[in-house]
Design a protein around this nucleic acid. Structure first.
Length: 765
DNA sequence: CTGTTTACGATTTTT
DNA sequence: TCGTAAACAG
């Protein structure tokens, strides 16, 4: 074990953050500024200073992050830091509630997964007769999303709908009723969702000062990572646990806030000094990760953002090549070019040092196929979950029932394993079972022998009170016939997965810990963890990670930024930060892919896709541009071409009206019948005639918003004006004015669009 | 009531 | 194209 020379191994700011243990500290850590390193050294410093590790609470965004930090701190010290409490807010909340058993937690409760939530909502809907035979009623996932959003943002259901799902406003009352029923359902069946964990802990702390006191004695030192992505209730929990003068360090970067959609509130960082008077502020602004050209590009990305996010990072390492903007003809050739680029890169560095990032999980399907064909190994993050597999759910339902017999979703799942039992029968048997009347239960199960055997089996499980591993083995044996019966095609494969799960269960001493860990953090798919493989990941899942080479695909309108983010400026800015996070993952090579055409499943045709506005706004001097020619070769765009194109774009993007250059293709030729023009696409490229209305607003970032036709007439409230005309959509009715510069317009046969007033011409009705 | 067929609608990100 | 929910048949 070597002596740690903190002053030498850290820069001055990092050193200060790592060695100031007393009182509140806020660390603003730019991307790649050695944030993790600082936390790791701080952990080591605390332990070396004689602080018992059990007094340290490390809250991170994922369990993986905290494990990694603890591992590294242990490696630094030469001995483990086992006693540190580390994990996510949700996991911490669950563990505290379980340990202290405050009011409402006297019984065993289980955590619901998305499937359980869907089932619960269905149940409530049936009971209330809400949305019956109404095809416009939102699906369960949507509803669950709305409910969760309302809680995390701490506003009413109606507010969320008004802001994010305008088209569902019609159902607002029904959804409110459904929400209340859902809350009652959870209580009745001893169930929790993720959000309950945080709010229930807060309530418990507010009602039981004694609990707060004891917790403050336990957790004398608190560190919170990724503070920019905490929501309001999480920040309050930190305040409750730490106290005003607590030894709490929050680490974050306002420029990397990408979870506002989930209720993360940037004010937590901004208000930290207010909540903790006398807090010390430390900024880490030296970037150790990326080479200068990559950093120049990411800095440019942020420079275009509103003031609050602005910051400039300085590279410690100099040199390196310019990032590349690669323009494939379509998303299929994009995949081929990605494979080609990865093959090139793989000569320089191992596959595990390369990542392909994308906005949404399904964007990578194409690339996955191409990679498989090329025989390149990859691991995907952010996609389907292991525990979503049907057979895993089946088995886990037994486990959950062994722990919490009231868990109705699990009960139903188990009952419906056999043929002949559906929702109604399940409910009947459940009621009979709860009544405690043995005869009633037998009667309810009269025609369903399987049901009774399941119930008996679960009772035996509960009575034998064996450990998780033994219980798991029993369940697997009991479940085997159903596995073979229900999954005849591939049950041996599924069996193997269950075997791994059994091993995992064996690592736990108590059943509920195993259950909560499985819900709160996915197990690593360890089967090929040690293999050298490429990473495919959503940008969200890539947070906090880094690679030598990063390729970002589908950098086009409606994908990145996501189509759903087009309406509100805040969401647009979050997409910008998301791209910032993506680009700052790269150490040496950054490749941006923006195909000209994207295959649309809806229309079953290729549609022209404008490059992402974020890419368009980048100064061309910051990257090399490579255009794919027919035949698959890449041709570098010369500086002269790029300048000329830029000038033309500015002209075309000017508000239409007297200066408008009509585009002969506009609205006449369907996008997919036009041939891509590869080399001389100057005029075909950017005018984006076939775009949707939302694109039209975003396509013109340079356009002065307040010189449009509407405001030009001096009208302060365009909504009163009635009708307007849009260059592409024609005549429409103004439904709503969205300050400061947009309108929601209804176009016949097209629907609602949000459009900059600058691109609307008023019409007299 | 349950299981099967048919028709329709809709697509993010995660604890 | 996929998943979900109404309609229908047993």
């Amino acid at each position: 074990m070597h002596e740690i020379d903190y002053a030498k191994e850290l820069n001055p700011a990092q050193y200060e953050a790592a060695t100031t243990l007393d009182g509140p500290i806020l660390v603003i850590a730019g991307a790649g500024s050695g944030k993790t390193r600082t936390v790791v050294y701080r952990l080591a410093y605390m332990v070396e200073s004689g602080i018992p590790s059990s007094q340290i609470l490390l809250l991170t965004f994922t369990r993986k992050a905290s494990q990694e930090m603890l591992r590294r701190a242990g490696a630094l010290l030469g001995y483990g830091v086992g006693g540190v409490h580390g994990g996510t807010f949700h996991a911490m909340a669950y563990s505290i509630l379980r340990q202290y058993r405050p009011k409402g937690y006297e019984r065993n409760v289980t955590l619901m997964d998305s499937g359980d939530i869907a089932a619960a909502l269905q149940e409530c809907r049936d009971k209330l007769h809400i949305g019956k035979a109404d095809r416009s009623f939102p699906r369960h996932q949507t509803i669950a999303g709305l409910f969760s959003k309302a809680r995390n943002k701490e506003c009413s259901i109606e507010d969320v709908i008004r802001r994010e799902a305008y088209h569902l406003l019609f159902h607002a009352d029904a959804l409110q009723l459904l929400y209340d029923a859902y809350a009652a359902y959870k209580k009745e069946h001893a169930l929790l969702d993720y959000d309950d964990l945080l709010f229930d802990l807060e309530n418990a702390l507010l009602q039981e000062p004694d609990m707060v006191k004891r917790l403050r004695e336990t957790f004398r030192y608190i560190m919170v990572d990724e503070y920019q992505d905490t929501n309001r209730v999480q920040a309050r929990l930190v305040r409750l646990l730490a106290g005003e003068k607590g030894n709490v360090m929050a680490v974050g970067d306002d420029a990397q806030s990408i979870y506002a959609f989930r209720g993360a509130d940037i004010r937590n960082i901004l208000d930290f000094p207010h909540h903790f008077p006398g807090a010390r502020l430390i900024k880490l602004e030296e970037n150790y990760r990326s080479l200068q050209p990559v950093l120049d590009l990411t800095n440019a990305l942020l420079a275009a953002a509103p003031e609050a996010y602005r910051k400039t990072l300085h590279a410690v390492q100099k040199g390196g090549a310019l990032p590349e903007l690669i323009r494939p003809i379509n998303n299929r050739t994009q995949s081929e070019l990605v494979v080609q680029k990865i093959s090139e890169l793989a000569c320089e560095c191992p596959l595990r040092e390369i990542a392909v990032l994308f906005r949404a999980a399904y964007h990578s399907y194409d690339v996955e196929i191409a990679l498989k064909q090329a025989g390149i190994r990859f691991r995907k993050y952010g996609g389907l979950k292991f525990s979503d597999a049907a057979h895993v759910k089946d088995v886990m339902s037994f486990v959950r029932l062994a722990y919490n017999p009231l868990d109705f979703p699990s009960f139903r799942r188990v009952m419906e394993l056999g043929k002949g039992v559906g929702p109604k029968t399940s409910q009947k048997i459940y009621d009979a079972m709860l009544s405690g009347d043995g005869a009633a239960l037998e009667k309810a199960c009269a025609r369903h022998a399987g049901a009774l055997s399941h119930i008996r089996f679960i009772q035996t499980l509960r009575e034998t009170r064996s450990g998780p591993y033994a219980i798991f083995r029993d369940i697997l044996a009991h479940y085997q016939p159903f596995l073979e019966q229900n999954y005849p095609d591939d049950f041996p494969y599924r069996e193997q997965g269950l075997e791994e799960l059994a091993q995992l269960a064996g690592e736990y001493a108590e059943l509920d810990l195993f259950l909560s860990d499985l819900s709160l953090e996915e197990p690593d798919q360890t089967d090929d963890a040690d293999q050298d493989a490429l990473t495919l990941s959503t940008v969200h899942s890539a947070k906090g990670l880094e690679w030598d080479a990063v390729l970002i695909i589908d950098l086009v309108e409606d994908r990145f930024p996501s189509r759903h983010a087009s309406l509100r400026a805040e969401e647009f800015e979050e997409e910008r930060r998301l791209l910032y996070v993506a680009c700052t993952r790269a150490r040496k090579y950054l490749g941006l892919f923006a195909p000209d055409f994207i295959y649309s499943r809806e229309t079953r045709s290729e549609e022209r896709a404008a490059p992402s506005p974020f890419v368009r706004a980048l100064p061309p001097s910051l990257y090399d541009e490579l255009q794919e020619c027919p035949g698959g070769r890449l041709r570098r765009r010369t500086e002269r071409e790029r300048t000329a194109r830029r000038a033309l774009r500015t002209t075309l993007n000017a508000p239409f009206g007297k200066n408008h250059v009509p585009d002969p293709d506009a609205a006449i030729t369907p996008a997919h019948t036009r041939k891509p023009r590869a080399a001389d696409d100057a005029e075909s490229d950017r005018s984006s005639p076939g775009m949707s209305g939302d694109d039209a607003c975003r396509d013109m970032p340079e356009a002065p918003a307040n010189t449009g036709c509407l405001s030009g007439k001096g009208d302060t409230d365009p909504a009163r004006c009635g009708f307007c005309r849009h260059r592409i959509f024609g005549r429409g009715k103004i439904v709503e004015y969205i300050p400061p510069d947009k309108c929601r317009v209804h176009f016949p046969n097209i629907g609602l669009k949000v459009i900059l007033t600058a691109y609307l011409a008023l019409e007299d009705s």
